[in-house]
Simulated scan of single mutants.
Amino acid sequence: MGIVKIDDELHEQARRASTVMCRSINAQAEFWMKIGMIAEANPTLSFNEIVSREFAAAQLRVAA
């Protein structure tokens, strides 16, 4: 675990998003980083495709 320095405005956006998504600020930032890393490695995947793949990898079935 370490400390990551981010811009104050980005921190505020993470704080607001974390409230909406019921996550801590750190969990929200970690989520954004993980999705961003996957998106960079797989530029043709949409956000929904990335999330679906992560659910499948966690063996989580979500009813439609």
Rank of each mutant, 00 (worst) to 15 (best):
E9N: 08
F47M: 08
G2S: 11
M1H: 03
I3C: 12
E40H: 12
D7W: 02
L10V: 09
G36Q: 07
S46W: 01
A56S: 03
Q13C: 05
F55Y: 15
S46G: 05
I38Q: 05
S46Q: 07
A58M: 12
R61F: 12
N48I: 02
S46A: 04
V51W: 01
M1C: 05
M1Q: 04
A14C: 13
M21R: 11
R15E: 03
A29F: 14
E9L: 11
S24M: 11
H11Q: 12
A29N: 00
R23Q: 10
A14R: 00
S18Q: 03
E54S: 06
H11F: 15
E9W: 08
C22K: 10
M37Y: 00
D7V: 02
L10Q: 11
R53W: 06
E54H: 05
N42L: 07
I25F: 10
A39W: 12
M21I: 01
N48S: 13
A64P: 06
I38Y: 11
A63P: 00
L60I: 14
A17E: 03
Q13Y: 01
S18M: 04
I50F: 05
P43H: 01
I35W: 02
I38M: 10
C22I: 06
T19C: 11
E54N: 05
L60W: 13
M33G: 13
M33E: 13
I25H: 00
N48A: 13
L45D: 07
A64E: 11
F55E: 11
M1G: 13
H11T: 00
R23M: 15
L10P: 00
V4L: 15
R23G: 06
V4S: 15
M1P: 11
V20R: 14
A17F: 10
A14E: 01
R23W: 12
Q28D: 04
S52W: 04
G2R: 07
S46P: 07
V4K: 14
V62A: 01
A41Y: 01
C22V: 04
A17W: 03
A29V: 14
F55D: 14
V62F: 09
T44V: 09
F55I: 04
S52V: 01
V20N: 06
L10M: 13
I3K: 08
F31G: 07
A17K: 15
K34M: 12
N48Q: 11
D7P: 03
I3G: 12
H11D: 10
R15C: 12
I6E: 07
N48H: 04
Q28I: 05
M33V: 09
V20A: 15
F47L: 14
A56Y: 10
I50W: 11
F31W: 06
N42Y: 13
A41I: 03
I25S: 00
V20I: 15
F47V: 13
V51K: 04
S46R: 06
D7S: 10
Q28W: 04
V20F: 09
I50P: 12
S18D: 00
S24W: 12
E9M: 13
V62Q: 06
G36S: 15
V62P: 03
V20E: 04
A17T: 02
R61L: 04
D8I: 06
R53G: 14
E40C: 13
G36H: 10
R61Y: 14
V51M: 04
S46D: 00
Q59C: 03
E49P: 03
G2A: 11
V20L: 10
E12W: 09
